[in-house]
Design a protein around this nucleic acid. Structure first.
Length: 315
DNA sequence: CCGGAACTACGACGTGACCT
DNA sequence: AGGTCACGTCGTAGTTCCGG
C-alpha cells in the first residue's frame, strides 16, 4: 500500500504516460478506490497539474495543456532509458543536439548515483562512429510520435522508393528505426494492410486528423515489417533460393539479411537488399548457407567486379 | 427523435486510524 | 475525548449509446 504522497507521484506519472485514463483503471493501478483517485486528482489540481475530467461513456481523466510544464515524474527504468535515448538521438535526429545535452545535464544532476552509473556505463563502452548528417528532423518525429500515442489519423505527401509521389492517409501505430533510418508503421485503409513509411521520404509536414480506434496489429507484424524494411528500401536487390522452410531458417538467418518467403515444402526464397554491390556481397556471405540466384541477374556484372577486386587484393 | 440503459465523474456522509 | 485525515459507500448528475 503506497503512502498518500507516493500515490500522488505515481498518479502524476500515470497521467503523463497516457493521454486518457478511466478513473476505474487508475484505481486499479494504484490499488485504491475510485473515490480516492478523485481526491488525489483534486490534490494534483491544487498543485498546478491541469487534470481534465470527462463524464459519460469513454470518460475519464487526462492531463490538459497548462501554462507551464508540471513536474515530470520518472521511475528508475524511465530515467535510465531517457538518458541513453538522449545520447543516441542527439546523433541521429537533427535539430535537438543542444537541447538533448541541456536535458542530459539536468538528468545527471537529479539522478541517484546508482542510476547514473547504469546510464553512463553504456555510453562509456560505446564508440560513436561518424555516420553523416542526421536523416530526419526531430519536430517531424515528435509529431508522428504524438499521432501514434493519441491514435489520430495522419495525412501526408509521400515519395516512394521509385520516386513516385502520392497523398496518403493512414492510422499510425508505431515509429521504428533501422540503422539511421526512421519508419512509421501504420494501417493503410486504402490498401487494407499494414505499411511502413520511411520518415525521410515525407514531403512537408503531415496533417493530424480525427481520432480512430486502434486495431490490434497481427502478432507477426513486427517481424514482417522488420524484414520488409531490410529489403524494400535498397537499390541493389536480389532474390535467393535456399533449402529449408521459413520457420527453420528464421532462427538461423539474421533478420537484417532480408525477407524470407516460402517457395516449396523444402525450399524458401530470401529477398536481400543493400545500398551497394559491395554491401550486397557482404550480406550474402553472412547468410552462411548455400544459395542460388533466382532474381537479380542484372547485378551479376557489378558483383563480379567486387569479387575481382577482392581476388586482386588477396590473390 | 425520444426515452431508457449504461457508464462515468462528482458530492455528501459515515467509519476507522492516528495524534494531541 | 476530541480533532484531523484518509478511505469507502451511496446517491446524484452529466454524457453517450442504442433500440423503438
Amino acid at each position: 500500500m503506497l503512502s498518500t504522497s507516493a500515490r500522488l507521484l505515481r498518479l502524476a506519472s500515470l497521467l503523463q504516460s497516457r493521454r486518457h485514463w478511466p478513473g476505474q483503471a487508475l484505481a486499479g493501478e494504484l490499488g485504491v478506490d475510485a473515490r480516492t483517485v478523485r481526491r488525489d486528482v483534486d490534490r494534483l489540481r491544487e498543485l498546478g497539474y491541469p487534470v481534465e475530467a470527462s463524464s459519460g461513456v469513454g470518460g475519464g481523466y487526462g492531463l490538459g495543456r497548462g501554462a507551464d510544464l508540471p513536474p515530470l515524474v520518472l521511475d528508475d527504468e524511465e530515467a535510465v532509458a531517457l538518458a541513453i535515448a538522449l545520447r543516441a538521438a542527439s546523433a541521429n535526429v537533427g535539430g535537438i543536439e543542444s537541447t538533448a545535452l541541456r536535458l542530459l545535464a539536468k538528468l545527471d544532476q537529479l539522478m541517484p548515483t546508482r542510476l547514473r552509473r547504469r546510464a553512463t556505463a553504456l555510453h562509456a563502452v560505446t564508440l560513436s562512429l561518424r555516420t553523416g548528417p542526421p536523416l530526419v528532423d526531430a519536430s517531424l518525429l515528435s509529431e508522428l510520435a504524438m499521432a501514434c500515442r493519441d491514435s489520430r489519423r495522419l495525412r501526408f505527401r509521400y515519395r516512394n522508393h521509385p520516386g513516385e509521389k502520392s497523398q496518403r492517409e493512414v492510422e499510425p501505430l508505431r515509429l521504428a528505426n533501422y540503422g539511421r533510418r526512421w519508419y512509421l508503421i501504420a494501417w493503410d485503409p486504402s490498401r487494407e494492410d499494414w505499411r511502413s513509411f520511411r520518415v525521410d521520404r515525407f514531403e512537408g509536414a503531415p496533417s493530424v486528423g480525427e481520432a480512430f480506434v486502434p486495431r490490434p496489429p497481427p502478432p507477426d507484424v513486427a517481424a514482417k515489417l522488420e524484414r520488409g524494411i531490410a529489403y524494400a528500401p535498397f537499390t541493389c536487390r536480389v532474390t535467393l533460393r535456399l533449402a529449408g522452410t521459413v520457420s527453420e531458417l528464421e532462427s538461423v538467418i539474421p533478420v537484417w539479411c532480408g525477407l524470407l518467403e516460402p517457395e516449396t515444402d523444402t525450399h524458401s526464397l530470401l529477398r536481400v537488399g543493400a545500398d551497394s554491390p559491395e554491401a550486397l556481397v557482404a550480406q550474402i556471405l553472412m547468410i552462411g548457407r548455400e544459395v542460388t540466384l533466382v532474381e537479380g541477374q542484372d547485378l551479376v556484372p557489378a558483383v563480379r567486379q567486387v569479387l575481382a577486386r577482392l581476388g586482386t587484393l588477396f590473390g
